[in-house]
Design a protein around this nucleic acid. Sequence first.
DNA 1: TTTAGTGTCGGGTACGTACCCGTAAATATA
DNA 2: TATATTTACGGGTACGTACCCGACACTAAA
Lengths: 352, 352
Amino acid sequence: MKEENTHSGVKEIARRANVSIATVDRVIHNRPGVSEKTKKKINDIITELDYQPNVLASRLASRKIISLAVLIPRVSEETDFWEAPFRGIMRAEAEIRKYGIQVQTFFFDLNDKHSFTEQAELILKKEVQGILLAPSFIDESRQLIQACQKLKIPVVFIDSNVPEQDNLCYIGPHLFQSGYVGAKLLTYRLKENHKVLVVNISKETDNYSYLQIEEGFRSYFKDHSQPCEIIRVDIKDTDKLSVAKELTRVLYDHEDIEAIFVTNSRVFSVASFLENAGRKDISLIGYDFLKENIRFLKEGLIDFLICHKPEEQGFRGLMALYQTLVLGSPVEKVHFMPIDIITKENQAFYQN
Amino acid sequence: MKEENTHSGVKEIARRANVSIATVDRVIHNRPGVSEKTKKKINDIITELDYQPNVLASRLASRKIISLAVLIPRVSEETDFWEAPFRGIMRAEAEIRKYGIQVQTFFFDLNDKHSFTEQAELILKKEVQGILLAPSFIDESRQLIQACQKLKIPVVFIDSNVPEQDNLCYIGPHLFQSGYVGAKLLTYRLKENHKVLVVNISKETDNYSYLQIEEGFRSYFKDHSQPCEIIRVDIKDTDKLSVAKELTRVLYDHEDIEAIFVTNSRVFSVASFLENAGRKDISLIGYDFLKENIRFLKEGLIDFLICHKPEEQGFRGLMALYQTLVLGSPVEKVHFMPIDIITKENQAFYQN
DNA sequence: TTTAGTGTCGGGTACGTACCCGTAAATATA
DNA sequence: TATATTTACGGGTACGTACCCGACACTAAA
């Protein structure tokens, strides 16, 4: 039963091929200076032995440090959503730092496209070997990605995807299905008239993510042929006062609204409004495991939160770069996060 | 901006303390042969520099292999629940193998306490340095744990806990709260009379886990003072025929049952019965992301599945041992898994 | 005083890989 | 043919830590 760990390394390969370790090393790293004949012989032996390089020794011996860049939104005073991915990024960094990998994080302002471009240029100057990116601004992201493509720098997207763009992989939600789940959850609370309100609170005009969510949301009612009237309202000013004003107006125009679906993490401002307006009868669903949202969830003003594991997105994003650059193993192109349902009852144990 | 990676290792410590590397090493590993005076001097420098040993180099230099044992139920033809933890265990093993850690997995039969004891004794003979355990049989587990305590072998529990027992940590669900969530989900489907059935399908008589779940389940109704009649039935024979027979009887006795809550993963056999009996009007909630359960979830016979990330339990369980034995860093004593809610709509992206 | 023992410590090698540098042979050029 | 250049390869050292094998000083016993 004592299986000897006959872990054969480069030494064994060199012995079998009657060459030196250095030559084997050259073949492994595709460096020049080896005749075709010896190269083939060594490659055959590598295949035969199913040689797996020792990552520990490899990273220990290689003195060069790999440096990665992260470009994500700054945590604003309005919403602390990006705290979670950042936590995941730091966790991943701590794990791969010992392999000689350095991570530099750059922040941009979600209300300022220019800051994105600025930081992106800074990153390109740093000559990093990989980038983790939250492509919140589509056009600006495209520019950065194209620059990276020329420099052969792999880019990983988190949180939202940029369609038809060459990247290493996307790690984030399936937004359409997420909206679909939202609709389903909403129906648990619907009583009679089936009049629901979709609220999008965002400064961004061309909000691609929002459209996908709403599409999924509407699809659910279509698929189930529910006689459901869907009102929608766009709120461009994200402060609570503006939100309250808009909502007051909408609820006045449509007094029989039963439920509200908020397409992003700003559901807390709607909850706050409902609380003040004394409209606890209206069901409310929104996104993300934020402190403020959890508070309203506990108080019963929010019925469900949907969440896509933002921390894990950050973690996995960096790990994907590590996997490519250090281990050289392939990464799946699209990794959809689970669509988690959070209620008052299970929130205590949720893992962001 | 160029922060020099002044990563000071043992060499730097030795230089500062005017001793050799070997002496520093002796202090770090608490080995004898160092005078109190030098020991203190070195320890002070270690603290001052906040020395973090290089795991790579450490594991590379240390030729001794750490071996761990895993004791979990065998995947039976009745339920493939334990496939998931096993997957997580293998994933963790692949990750820590490069650090010279060997994992041996032992399986026992959930219907045979004797097989548990047998395998436990086998493990003790192997002289492993750590054990990952699914303590399905409480008394038998206690015996094993006490033996480990004497040998100073850390033990990690997954899936279920053994109360008042000294272990390294527990990684698994908060069963009470899980039942509580189950009750909440059930109420979404309840219409008028509020008569629900709790079904426990299990060969084990002293099922401690089950009791906790049911307690949580009942608590929900108590907390919300719902006028809810809860019928319960224990089914000791787990084959589909016996389940069908029992359920037929219960549904005959109580013809106005609106919903069924199954306390474990065998909800598929109830779903199968309801399908055959043409009782799609009854709501059904149960546990675990099994293939068969997913099938019924998709077909609409099961309304909700609750799941506690079994794969991650296995993964984290092994990693906890790694953390203790290799990194020497502390592990939190209890790590509750999230109580995930799975519906037809979000099941496609669930991560077990 | 010699000898054996004990308490402290340093030198040196190994782990598996990366990569610099040197060299001999083969080939090209004068 | 002599010299320069290229090709193909080996020797050796380093990465940061673990640990074996001694060396040396000092004390206690003979």
